[in-house]
Simulated assay, not measured.
Amino acid sequence: MSKPMTKTQLVAALADDMGSDKKTASAALDALIGIITREVSGGGAVTLPGVGKIYCRERPERMVRNPATGEQFKKDADKVVKMTIAKALKDSVNS
């Protein structure tokens, strides 16, 4: 498995595809990340066409176990960010 693309590499690729400079591409990426963060943390969801859907899901209170000690304790309800991958992306990876 290859290393994941870094933000610097992503900004460079985005600037190249947009035909603009890295500063503009970095600002666009930061704005997109900000919008996604704001929407998902507010309980909404964001669909990125061809990529997938990012959303927040609530998990109920539950019993968990500390693997080091074996002790069981109750974990409060919390929220977790999930992503459902679009079929188009799955198909492109598996083709």
Rank of each mutant, 00 (worst) to 15 (best):
G34C: 10
I36C: 01
M63K: 15
K75N: 07
Y55P: 02
R59I: 04
A86R: 03
G19T: 07
T24Y: 00
L48G: 03
T8F: 05
L89N: 11
P49W: 00
L29M: 13
L48Q: 00
L29Q: 01
L48P: 02
T69I: 08
V80P: 03
A25D: 00
L48A: 05
D17Y: 14
A68K: 15
M1T: 12
G34E: 06
G50A: 04
I33M: 15
A27Y: 02
L14C: 11
A86V: 08
D21L: 07
V40K: 04
K75R: 15
R38S: 13
I85A: 14
G34S: 09
I36W: 01
T24E: 07
V51T: 05
A45H: 00
V11S: 02
L29P: 02
T47E: 15
K3E: 15
M1Q: 12
F73N: 12
T47R: 13
V46G: 01
M63N: 11
S26L: 09
A28N: 03
V93Y: 09
G50D: 04
T6L: 08
A12M: 08
S95P: 08
A15V: 07
S20A: 13
T6D: 07
K87N: 12
G50E: 01
K23H: 11
L10S: 07
Y55R: 04
P67G: 10
P60Y: 04
R38T: 15
L29T: 03
K75L: 14
K74W: 05
I36V: 14
A31F: 10
A45Y: 00
K53I: 02
T24I: 08
Y55H: 02
R62P: 05
K87W: 08
R57K: 10
Q9C: 07
G52D: 04
T8M: 10
A27Q: 11
A88H: 07
D91K: 14
K7S: 11
N66W: 09
S2H: 10
D76T: 12
A31H: 13
E39V: 15
A25L: 05
D78C: 11
S41I: 06
L10M: 15
K22F: 05
N66H: 12
L32C: 11
K75G: 04
G42R: 05
P60N: 13
E39F: 00
T24F: 03
S41D: 05
P67N: 12
K87I: 09
A25E: 00
L48C: 06
P67C: 10
F73T: 12
R65F: 05
K90Q: 12
Y55Q: 02
K90E: 10
V11D: 01
A25K: 01
S92P: 06
P67R: 11
A31L: 13
M5T: 15
L89F: 15
D17H: 14
V81T: 06
Y55L: 04
K79M: 07
K23N: 09
A28D: 03
V40F: 00
R57E: 02
I36G: 00
K7Q: 13
E58S: 14
S2V: 06
A86M: 09
A77V: 01
K74Y: 06
R59G: 01
M1A: 13
Q72R: 14
G19I: 06
A28T: 00
S92W: 11
R62Y: 06
M5W: 11
C56N: 07
G42N: 09
